[in-house]
Computed example of a mutant assay.
Amino acid sequence: MALKKILLIFMGIMFAQLVSAQEGLPIYTDYLTDNYYLIHPSMAGAANCAKIRMTGRQQWFGQDDAPKLLTLSANGRIGDTQSAIGGILYTDKNGYHSNSGAYLTYAHHLLFSRSEVDLNMLSFGLSAGFIQYKLDETTFLFDGPDPIIDGIVQSETNFNIDLGFSYQYLDFYAHATVKNVLNNAGVNNDIEITSNLRRYLLSVGSVFGKYGSTWSYEPSFMFQYKDGTQEASIDINAKVYKSMEFGTIWGGLSYRTSLDGAEFINSSNNVSSQKLQQITPILGINIKQFMFAYNYTYQSNSLVFTNGGFHQFTLGYNFNCKRERYDCNCPAVN
């Protein structure tokens, strides 16, 4: 029975790595570091500055082949028009699996208010790009021919699209996006769920602050649903901003929990279930046109691969800035 428990846990970890490594650009909490464009294409060019954001994420320090993620994104308006463009490059490695991608985005922003003083804007965005999946089987151990192990680096490149919209009214915002709209073969075409990487995202939030105060507060949440595996999770977030002479300092806390549990065999040989639970504190600072942020994700489940956390850094640069156009607490736009 002990061997059975070990095998079940091992299979669960490997299956989770397989799905994660083929999901395209993974969704963590880096969108909270002034980086909503990374997950919502409709946010390209929504701000009064063009933006460049670079993130690096390292999980489980000290573990071989631990998950690593690097992203680079840029977006901005096309001159003085209501249209915007953006681009994303990323590479995600998770054990024997890895995927890299490149996306181009077009977004359009419709302003419904009488002037640019009051924010009332509906935005649409479409991203299209390529994802290259890799599975390195060169170090797999097996005796003789195996029908499912080729002993090579398998590689497959697929095309996919993301589409979504955003609505921002004064201090309130809402974003909805469908990611990976098309079915992809990946490098595991015999496993049905890896061909359907479709994911639905919904983000809602608002920023509160007294007139003339240097403090503002932003509660928000994000719901996501994976169509292929029928998994759902929710992020509950809270951020606080403090305006300074040199810029802004800010921080926050994010709590992610899954709405579905994963079953495993416990020490009493009974079937138990646990839900994903992650807590992520976030710290950031804006100094003139530069931005730096750090977040640390701690997984609080009782059954985990390792107790080590996930570290992520974000570096940002704003350029081609115009004046703050709107009279609102809307840090993602002004």
Score class of each variant (00 low, 15 high):
residue 162 D to R: 04
residue 284 G to V: 01
residue 123 S to P: 03
residue 282 I to A: 07
residue 289 Q to E: 12
residue 207 V to I: 10
residue 169 Y to S: 05
residue 299 Q to F: 14
residue 271 V to R: 10
residue 193 I to N: 05
residue 115 S to P: 06
residue 149 I to Y: 05
residue 122 L to M: 11
residue 161 I to M: 08
residue 319 F to M: 03
residue 213 S to K: 11
residue 1 M to S: 15
residue 205 G to L: 00
residue 87 G to S: 11
residue 37 Y to K: 04
residue 310 F to G: 09
residue 306 T to W: 08
residue 147 P to C: 04
residue 31 Y to K: 07
residue 316 G to T: 03
residue 118 D to R: 08
residue 332 A to T: 11
residue 333 V to D: 00
residue 284 G to I: 01
residue 38 L to G: 08
residue 246 F to R: 06
residue 253 L to Q: 02
residue 218 E to S: 14
residue 169 Y to N: 12
residue 82 Q to F: 07
residue 199 R to L: 08
residue 105 T to P: 02
residue 333 V to M: 04
residue 170 L to T: 13
residue 33 T to S: 04
residue 317 Y to P: 03
residue 149 I to W: 09
residue 151 G to Y: 04
residue 17 Q to A: 07
residue 294 Y to D: 05
residue 290 F to Q: 15
residue 123 S to T: 06
residue 70 L to M: 11
residue 251 G to E: 02
residue 197 L to I: 14
residue 294 Y to G: 01
residue 142 F to P: 04
residue 180 N to Q: 14
residue 94 N to D: 13
residue 169 Y to V: 02
residue 280 T to I: 09
residue 196 N to T: 11
residue 287 I to C: 07
residue 15 F to Y: 11
residue 292 F to K: 04
residue 47 A to W: 00
residue 214 T to F: 07
residue 150 D to V: 13
residue 22 Q to W: 02
residue 165 F to Y: 10
residue 132 Q to F: 11
